Simulated assay, not measured.
Amino acid sequence: MTSRDRLLAATVVLLWGVNFLAIRVGLDHLPPFFFAALRFAVIAVPAVLLIPRPQVRWRWILLYGTGFGILQFAFLFTAMRIGMPTGLASLVLQSSAPFTVVLGALLLRERLRPVQIAGLLVAVAGMAVIGWNQFAHATLLPVLLTLAAGFGWALGNIGARQASVEAPGSNPLHLTLWITTVPVLPLLAISAVWEGPTTGLQALRETFTADGWPALAALGYTAVLATVVGSGLWTYLMSRYPAGSVAPLSLLVPVVGFTTAWIFLGETPTVASLIGGAVVIAGAFAATAGARKPSASRREAPEVVTGLVDTAPRDETPPGHRAGAVPRPDGLAIRYAARETGAILTTDTGRPAEPAVR
Score class of each variant (00 low, 15 high):
residue 213 W to D: 12
residue 60 W to I: 08
residue 123 A to T: 11
residue 191 S to V: 02
residue 284 A to I: 09
residue 32 P to T: 03
residue 107 L to F: 15
residue 192 A to P: 07
residue 329 P to Q: 03
residue 233 L to K: 05
residue 57 R to G: 15
residue 254 P to H: 06
residue 153 W to N: 13
residue 210 A to Q: 08
residue 200 G to V: 10
residue 36 A to R: 02
residue 18 V to P: 04
residue 155 L to K: 07
residue 341 T to E: 02
residue 139 T to I: 01
residue 338 A to F: 03
residue 278 A to I: 07
residue 315 D to V: 07
residue 74 A to E: 03
residue 323 A to F: 12
residue 211 D to K: 06
residue 107 L to V: 15
residue 1 M to G: 09
residue 348 D to R: 07
residue 270 T to Q: 02
residue 171 N to D: 15
residue 59 R to Q: 10
residue 357 V to N: 11
residue 176 T to R: 02
residue 106 L to Q: 10
residue 40 F to K: 04
residue 355 P to A: 02
residue 347 T to H: 06
residue 258 F to Y: 08
residue 297 S to I: 14
residue 199 T to P: 08
residue 31 P to R: 08
residue 25 V to R: 04
residue 155 L to Y: 01
residue 23 I to H: 10
residue 267 E to M: 06
residue 347 T to S: 09
residue 190 I to A: 15
residue 223 A to I: 11
residue 108 L to W: 09
residue 33 F to C: 07
residue 7 L to K: 08
residue 338 A to Y: 00
residue 55 Q to K: 15
residue 341 T to L: 07
residue 60 W to H: 08
residue 224 V to F: 04
residue 162 Q to I: 02
residue 5 D to K: 15
residue 3 S to E: 12
residue 165 V to Y: 13
residue 179 I to F: 04
residue 97 A to G: 11
residue 191 S to M: 03
residue 67 G to H: 13
residue 155 L to C: 15
residue 322 R to E: 14
residue 262 W to Y: 08
residue 136 A to P: 00
residue 169 G to F: 06
residue 141 L to M: 14
residue 2 T to W: 13
residue 84 M to S: 12
residue 271 V to W: 13
residue 276 G to D: 01
residue 102 V to L: 14
residue 59 R to E: 05
residue 40 F to R: 02
residue 249 L to W: 13
residue 45 V to L: 12
residue 87 G to N: 03
residue 97 A to D: 05
residue 121 L to P: 07
residue 324 G to T: 03
residue 305 V to Y: 05
residue 292 R to G: 12
residue 29 H to I: 04
residue 279 V to E: 01
residue 86 T to L: 12
residue 304 V to L: 08
residue 256 V to A: 12
residue 43 I to C: 09
residue 186 P to A: 07
residue 42 V to K: 09
residue 222 T to W: 03
residue 122 V to M: 04
residue 34 F to H: 05
residue 137 H to T: 13
residue 292 R to H: 12
residue 308 L to N: 11
residue 124 V to M: 15
residue 326 V to P: 00
residue 14 L to P: 00
residue 268 T to A: 10
residue 301 A to V: 05
residue 62 L to N: 03
residue 357 V to Y: 10
residue 5 D to M: 12
residue 126 G to P: 01
residue 338 A to K: 04
residue 6 R to G: 11
residue 173 L to D: 02
residue 184 V to G: 00
residue 115 V to E: 06
residue 111 R to K: 15
residue 264 F to P: 07
residue 164 S to R: 14
residue 315 D to R: 10
residue 346 T to S: 03
residue 202 Q to C: 14
residue 143 V to M: 13
residue 153 W to R: 00
residue 168 P to L: 14
residue 208 F to Q: 05
residue 314 R to A: 15
residue 134 Q to H: 14
